[in-house]
């Protein structure tokens, strides 16, 4: 055995006494990738530079087609970059075969082997590494316990619910104790309630095993809930990398501001300011802008009031509750405190 398999419980115990130390585990250098489709060439990744620390939970957040899945597949080795390098603990693995890389992936559709039982699925990674059968069985049991699927080892994947399949997929990847675990929208197929629950569980697992996670999602709430750092991807580049707080309260570009939490973009002279809907004040002393209510809607526990300013710009304000003392068509004064407007680079399309 090249690497001794530390038992899960022992692993978590030593984890408790761990001193937090920023050690780079994965480094991406100038990654580019283009796809050619007949005559059209699309640049999917335009030079990604990034480094990830051990035990970090990183989320790649972006709309579909921003290149986040391609980046993940390049790290896994399922796709090769046109230029640039991937370094895993300092070793250049850019050209290394995917089956030799010490990273594992949780696929979007789970990709469970339909002809294998839950236990065989989870143990597959260890089987390919020729780990003795007895040891595999023990590890599989530990994993099943960890993802709360004890007693399901003999089931076939098609006899499981969506959430259970998800757990098997996670267990199958995590049993290998990869240096980095890649998760491609793993909760995308689950309903909202289950998704919330799995978010918490994933976070718990990640902390417990101290595995580095690179997590893909297009759901900003999920990203904010789970991540240590978020990388907002747009059009093949990282727009901004930062903690959920930084991304939410100090967006650097108008794309980040509007994608994460739907901030208002207020144009004044040549500058663009991001103002969160909850920071928009109505008929208070700071309010200086004339506005007309053009729409009211209730969503996500909040009432959203859409105003049109006299110059035609639209601003949304949000309030708790289901109604507010303003009717559609009514005039109002709106504004915001100076520090709740963040100047951003304009790049929204």
């Amino acid at each position: 055995m090249e690497k001794a398999f530390t038992s899960v419980s022992a692993f978590s115990k030593c984890n408790e006494g761990r001193i937090k130390m920023a050690k780079t585990v994965l480094e991406l250098q100038q990654i580019t990738k283009s796809f050619t489709d007949k005559t059209k060439q699309t640049e999917v990744l335009k030079g990604i530079d990034f480094s990830i620390n051990e035990g970090e939970f990183i989320t790649l957040l972006g709309a579909s087609g921003c290149g986040k899945t391609t980046l993940l597949r390049i790290i896994a080795g399922l796709e090769s970059a046109d230029t640039g390098s991937v370094l895993l603990e300092g070793e250049d693995i850019t050209k290394k075969e995917p089956y030799l890389r010490d990273v594992n992936m949780v696929f979007q559709n789970y990709a469970l082997f339909p002809h294998m039982t839950v236990a065989e699925n989870i143990g597959y990674g260890l089987k390919t590494k020729k780990v003795p059968k007895k040891e595999i069985a023990t590890k599989v049991q530990e994993m099943l316990e960890l993802v709360q699927l004890e007693g399901y080892e003999k089931r076939m994947p098609d006899k499981l619910s969506g959430g259970q399949r998800q757990r098997v997929a996670i267990a199958r990847a995590m049993i290998n104790q990869p240096k980095v675990l890649l998760l491609d929208e793993p909760l995308g197929a689950l309903d909202l309630k289950l998704r919330r629950q799995m978010q918490l569980e994933l976070k718990r697992l990640q902390k417990k095993l101290n595995t580095t996670f690179i997590y893909i999602t297009h759901d900003q709430e999920e990203a904010i809930n789970m991540s240590d750092r978020i990388a907002v991807m747009h059009d093949g580049v990282f727009e901004q990398v930062g903690t959920p707080n930084e991304i939410y309260y100090q967006p650097e570009t108008s794309y980040v501001a509007s994608f994460v939490g739907n901030a208002n973009l207020y144009h004044k002279a040549d500058a663009v300011y991001a103002v969160r809907a909850e920071s928009v004040l109505i008929n208070e002393t700071e309010c200086t802008l004339d506005a007309v209510v053009i729409e009211k809607s209730f969503a996500g526990g909040q009432l959203r009031i859409l105003f049109a300013l006299s110059d035609g710009q639209k601003i949304t304000a949000s309030r708790f509750g289901i109604d507010y003392d303003l009717k559609v068509g009514e005039q109002a004064k709106i504004g915001w405190k100076e520090d709740s407007a963040v100047r951003v680079i304009a790049n929204e399309n």
């Binding site: 075969e97 995917p98 696929f107 559709n109 990709a111 082997f113 597959y124 990674g125 390919t128 590494k129």
Partner: peptide, 19 residues
């Protein structure tokens, strides 16, 4: 065939023949 299954096998350490 769902080819992502093959990718999953390769990702889990199977070379192309084994996968």
């Amino acid at each position: 065939m769902d080819w992502s299954l093959l990718e999953a096998a390769v990702d889990l350490g199977a070379n192309r023949r084994k996968a």
